[in-house]
Each structure stands twice: as C-alpha cells, then as structure tokens.
Design a protein around this nucleic acid. Sequence first.
DNA 1: CTTTTTTGTGTACACTTGTTTGCCATCCTG
DNA 2: CAGGATGGCAAACAAGTGTACACAAAAAAG
Lengths: 211, 211
Amino acid sequence: MAERKRRKPGETREKLMEAALTLVGKGRHFASLGIREVTRQAGVVPTAFYRHFRNMDDLGLQLVDELGLVLRRMMREARQNVLQADKLMEESVAIFISHVQQNRNFFIFMAQGLAGESRAVQEGIRSELRFFSSELSNDLRRLRLADHLSDADLELTCDLVVRTVAFSLTDLIGVSPDDEYQVDQIKVRTTRFLQLIFVGAANWRTASRPE
Amino acid sequence: MAERKRRKPGETREKLMEAALTLVGKGRHFASLGIREVTRQAGVVPTAFYRHFRNMDDLGLQLVDELGLVLRRMMREARQNVLQADKLMEESVAIFISHVQQNRNFFIFMAQGLAGESRAVQEGIRSELRFFSSELSNDLRRLRLADHLSDADLELTCDLVVRTVAFSLTDLIGVSPDDEYQVDQIKVRTTRFLQLIFVGAANWRTASRPE
DNA sequence: CTTTTTTGTGTACACTTGTTTGCCATCCTG
DNA sequence: CAGGATGGCAAACAAGTGTACACAAAAAAG
C-alpha cells in the first residue's frame, strides 16, 4: 500500500552501502555496525539486506571494490595534473587531500579497515595500497625521476610514500573537514614527509646502502 | 554459592581488561565488543563490569593508559641496548618487534585505536605517539646524531620514523606471530624504511629545503 | 570486635539483534 | 502479454544486549 517499489534495480544496494559509509562518517566503526542499523539508516526493511549481501563482511568487501574505483580516479587526476616535476609532491598531496575531502567516508572506511575486523577487507585494502605503490613506481620510472635506483629500491621508496600518505588519513579523520587551517597543516606536513623521503632516495645508494 | 570471592582487590578489573585484549587478539575489533561479551570472557558476571568501568569507552581509555606503560618499558630497553650508533636502527626495530610479539594484543589494540570509534581513545593513542616521537628527538640530540638539523626538522624526522614503525603494525597483525620468516621480512623492510628516512635527514638541508 | 565500604553475585526487564518465511509488486525476456 | 526472475515488505522468533536493583561476602576503618 502506501507507496511501494519505485526503485530501479540496484538502488537499494547503493543505499545500503551509502548508509554504512554515512554511519562510518558519523564516527562509528564499521566493525560495530549491525545489519538492522544499516538498513534503518538506509530507510529499508531489514530483510532487504539479504537480497544484496550475505552479511556485513560481504558489504565491506564490496565497499573495498568501490574504494578501488575512487583510488583509480584519484590516480588518473594526479597523472593529468602533475606535469612538471618540481611541484610534484606538493600537487600530489593536494590532490590526495582534495579527494579525501570529497569522499571522506570512503577514506575513513579505508583507514578503519587497515586494522579492521574482517581479514578479507584488511587484505583487500592492503592489496589496493600495493597496487597504488606499484603504479607509482611505474610512473616515476616513466618520468625518469628515479634512474639511479634499482627496481627494488624504487619499490621500497614508493611503498614508504604510500604508507606515509595513508597514515596521514588518521590525522585527517581527527580534524573537522571544514577546519581549513588544520587541514592545511596536515597537507604541508605530509608534503615535507614526502620530500624527506625523496631526498633520502636521491642519496640512497651513494650515501648509505650497508653491504 | 559454590565458591565466592577469593579475589584480591583489583583482580577482576585486570581480568576484564585482559579479557578485552584477548578478544582483540582473537581477531575481534575493540569497537565491536560488548560488555556482556567481555565479562563472559573474563569469567565474571555482567554487572561486575560496572564496579570498574562506566562503559566500554572507559575501559578503552584505561587500556590506553596501560599501553603507555608498555611503550615506556620498550623505550627504556631501547635506550639501554642501543649504544653504538651504527646498528641503531636495526637494533631498535628488533626491540620493537620483540615487544610487539610479547604484548601482541596491546599493539593490535593500538593499531585499531588509531582509527577507532572512540574519539578519546584515538586522541590518547595519538598523544602516546607524539610523546614517543619527542623522546626520540631528545635522544638523538643527546647522542649528537642530528647536529645539522634544526629542532623543527629533527622533530619532523622523528615523527615520520614513529609513523613508519606504527604503520608496520598493520603488517605485523596480518601475519601469524609464529611465522618467523614473514616477521623477519617485516623487520628488515621496516629497517630499510628507517635507513631511507635517515639518509634523507642527513642530506636534508644541504640537498633540498625549498625556500 | 563492630561498622562501613568495597566488590562480586543473582535475578529481572525492556529492548535490539540476526535470520526465516510467506507474500506481492515490479521488471525483464520472449 | 504471458511468465518467470528480481527485489522489496510485514510479521515473527529465539538469542543476545545494556542496565537496574537488592543482597552478601570480604576488606578496610574505627
């Protein structure tokens, strides 16, 4: 009665995923969310959940997949906009921060998932990070910005870069997204971290390299 | 009736904290734990919980306090055992890993808390990390290992070091603690990260430093 | 020893949870 | 337009949840 299904296929599914992200954005941890809670937030009856997901872990896995798309979009934008090498890090970090602001809940979910409850989600996110790191390696090679580094050392450097940026998520989720000053502080600090790392990479084989 | 209280004061309190950590160690996320679940694991009646904690967040905060003690013990051991500078990083990382193995559940809790549900716990852990970073700064100054760095740059470097080590927790909780090979891989990789950072720090002001 | 404070227990209640089952509206395909 | 597949709804249930209350053993205080 009342009004029934006007929904086109897949709409409820998206509503459920979005509801989970919304709750995460409100400060809840994904691991503490329940099926009923999510369906309630989505404005849907509990049983509708099972039409799309087997359980909350399943929903989490599908969120990781979508997260992959978000990351890829970000990567594409970075590749287009960072052309000259001198402002590379500053601009990359700016793009990262901007995407985090735009998809805040997604990135909070990602930060949570790294030490989350579901082993599968954990591994999924780690896998995304590995992918990201390897793409970064390729780009730096292609731009001939790391010619003096071996493949292994370049990969090490990129891994550290990705970790550092990822860790800055825990800073970002600690401040209000509207607090421009704080966000900017995090931006310049992260940029400095990356500069420090690249100075290390530039002097790597010559200065150190134990054996 | 059966047998009643043979407990000396504060024992149940410890049992509850330990129970929470045990569950965390079993793969659960702290945010998803309930009062009843924790008391059940502790072998105590649910209402006993309220004799010691107001709610789960309160328990989390008190866990952060104990975590502080664990970290301080680790710091002390590092200060005693790392005497000559050349193996500084290798030994420090080894000590870190060893303490993580010894207090695994505590460190998993820490990794979870960084993006956890309770804002207070989050801030508590971040505060511990800041403290750790500043102590590291002091030590490096005292050992005269960073004479060419300004206070701000030294602080930046130490912060990055602490973050890198902290992030390696997410690697460690992903592998079995008995898998010596994998643990060793993480150890050498983390050590390389730190070496890379310190090479960067050593060449910092001379090589880079934008304006 | 007595009194008070602390700490653990048992029972109880109202509420939420995950999941099942049966029903119907809509969409897709032929 | 027929008919099956898809996706949403309502009602129901057992199990689990947080929390309150009153009572009792032990420890601390006098």
